[in-house]
Amino acid sequence: MPNFVTSRLFWIGALTVIVALVLPTYVSGYVLGLLTVAYYTAVFAMSWDLLFGFAGEVNFGPTFLIGVGAYTAGILDAHFSPGLSIWLCIAAGALAAVVGGVVLALPALRVSGPYFGLTTLVAVLMLQNFIVVAAGLTGGEIGLAVPDVISIDAKTNYWIALGFMLVSGAILFGLSRSAIGLILQASGQDKIQAGALGFNVTKHKLAAFVVSAFFSGLAGALMVFYMGTASVSTFVDVGVGVQIIIAAVLGGRRTVIGAAIGAIFLIGMGELLRPLGELATLIVSVIALVVILFFPDGFLGIIRGGAKA
């Protein structure tokens, strides 16, 4: 049965990738632009799922890592362009996010549950305050105008985002199915027992934070150079973090792939419902609530349920 489920998942995954690959021939630049954002958001959600689903850490602050990566890259470019290649800026953003991940991991190794949740929430609020107070450097509430973009061609951006999502998805998925992932899962469910079995829980958790931070930061930095602007409301606001969490839970926790599906669904739905104007967010939230209440395993759970029947 697990094999069947995996293979079913595999085929759905393969089909999705094929659709994604041929899409640029058929759809307009705008749809590609939308999917570009969706793919980056998918990476945010997958990174979050690695931390929550496997390490069992309720992280309310995915945007802390994303924001650190995005702003580091954006600020470097805004101050040193064109002397500094944007790829260097992006690398620096990812690196800074890793440092942020280690800082965030420190309390996580001591406290758990709602206490850790709050610590991550506070981290986001602190970052937000810092960005507003240090307006000279960060652009403050205004947002930071970044002089360079990767490309203005919708297709180029689409390919970069798709490639990035597939590579990070493969790495995160592989990691979650490896021995490390299993140990993380064990320690998330019963920390003491996992420790008693001789696993170095601390080391593995730290690794999970570093990996999650790396991909969050990298995706944040790439998205800055897609948008050409970095602002609190796009990368740091608690609301953005909430979207990511909802995406991951909606798609199905502990699956990594589910998180990506959830993210693409959320962004896509938001756009489809745009003609409804202000009601769009409301309807998306209602859908998400219904899924969580009636299909707790998310979209992937629904697919698996179908497999069982």
């Binding site: 307009s28 630049g29 705008y30 632009g33 939308l34 954002v37 947002g143 919708a154 948008m227 050409g228 602007t229 602002s231 409301s233 796009t234």
Partner: peptide, 13 residues
């Protein structure tokens, strides 16, 4: 800002 950028892209393309 982010939604505006997306809206602008949509409007033009």
């Amino acid at each position: 800002s982010a939604e505006s950028v997306r809206a602008f892209q949509r409007a033009v393309s």
